[in-house]
Design a protein around this nucleic acid. Structure first.
Lengths: 221, 221
DNA sequence: ATGAGTGTTTAGCTTTGTCTAAAAATATTC
DNA sequence: GAATATTTTTAGACAAAGCTAAACACTCAT
């Protein structure tokens, strides 16, 4: 299979992510929304991707990613998330600063580079946002994610990801001392407003509103 | 000044390197040789670069890089060489494997990334080939380089670079235990064929032909 | 079931960076 | 100094990736 151009990689990744969200068929408009391009541009690109065999397409019927498309997309996702780990763990970037740079770095073409980077980082299984990193074969494992607000008093676990990854929300978390990987336990729950008291890393008590707890995902309850 | 595209950066870097080799004016043909493009493509690009103010150009008279062009080129060179240090020092690449990947990485646009990478690497002053790394202001210092074959018996120094950086030559050096940074001393010189006996890192005697010693550059005699 | 509205595609244009072929300018040689 | 050779530029084409505007197809209400 011929390799993909920079733009083709971006379209395929968008289609892959949209395919993950439930339905099999991805619409032209949803792709153009995701990538901030016009539907006409998407139609053009769909033809190219279909020729390369990474998607199937019938006119006016949306797009379906193929097995080989999923494989290719997973390798791009793998690169993106490995670079995010590098930026956060080695270069001390914050969560909210890594995405755009990783968008560029993910397109670097060098299998050896990615293999060595993976090794250098200690073969991480999850990126700084808690999303799984596929291995060279495309295999990955999701951690079960439960919104913090669904936990009961006494439940414990680890912050694995956030739903709202806006800079504002990430900065709030930083400020109160919560972070991806923090161990937490639910100390008290106020039924009236759904707010929680949680213990962070066995040392710090924190009160969070339901609005906040809905956006924090916990694993390993 | 408007920023440069990927291709414009490559042309500017080529012009910068060609300008370093003595003469001020760089010819269209030499640029097309360097970049493996056709002279017609170079003529087109020259117009664009002249509009952006990084080169001066009079028709049929070659090209001269401007001060602002040198500044821009030095930042690209800085990025290229920092990535080379990263690849060799952190990811265990060999000297002869880093150039192509660094050619891609040097185009990533993120001042913060380069700043953090520089810090992570310990603010290196020279890349794995012994070439100087400009700082954020474009300042750098060349080490004086003398070909090994011009040293006399008793002279000592450090391998700072190689002239011939073909994979074959670099692999030969690896095999005999010579490397950038190795400390050497000239033990004996055969006047008949110009071959040398040298002591490497105070522990290993090595015989090298004149053809080899011409291609090894020494600093700090 | 038809007509309005939404979604998708086509047609044609733009920019970037490349090319070939031909024309123009400079350099070299006799 | 004229003829030839080389270098450089122009002209015109093409592919990639985007756009606008217009045409086409599907979907849903009435």
């Amino acid at each position: 299979m011929k390799s993909l151009t920079y733009a083709e990689e971006n379209y395929l990744k968008a289609i892959y992510h949209l395919s993950e969200e439930g339905k099999k068929e991805v619409s032209t408009n949803s792709i153009s929304d995701e990538l901030k391009t016009k539907p006409a541009s998407v139609s053009d690109m769909i033809k190219k991707l279909a020729v390369k065999g990474v998607i199937n397409h019938k006119k006016y019927q949306g797009v379906r990613i193929t097995t080989s498309g999923i494989e290719a997309a997973l390798q791009i996702v793998r690169k993106h998330r490995l670079w995010e780990v590098f930026l956060v763990n080695k270069l001390n970037f914050n969560w909210d600063e890594v995405h755009e740079v990783a968008e560029e770095l993910e397109h670097i073409q060098s299998p050896l580079l990615i293999q060595r980077l993976d090794e250098f980082l200690g073969y991480p299984k999850y990126d700084p946002h808690g999303d799984p990193i596929p291995d060279e074969t495309g295999t990955y494992k999701l951690k079960p994610k439960t919104p913090l607000n669904e936990l009961q008093v006494g439940d414990s676990g680890q912050i694995i990801a956030v739903k709202d990854s806006s800079a504002a929300f990430l900065q709030y978390l930083d400020k109160v001392g919560a972070y991806i990987g923090a161990k937490i336990r639910v100390i008290d729950k106020v039924e009236f407003d759904g707010s929680l008291e949680i213990l962070v890393d066995n040392k710090k008590n924190l009160f969070v509103s339901k609005d906040v707890s809905k956006n924090i995902l916990i694993t390993n309850i």
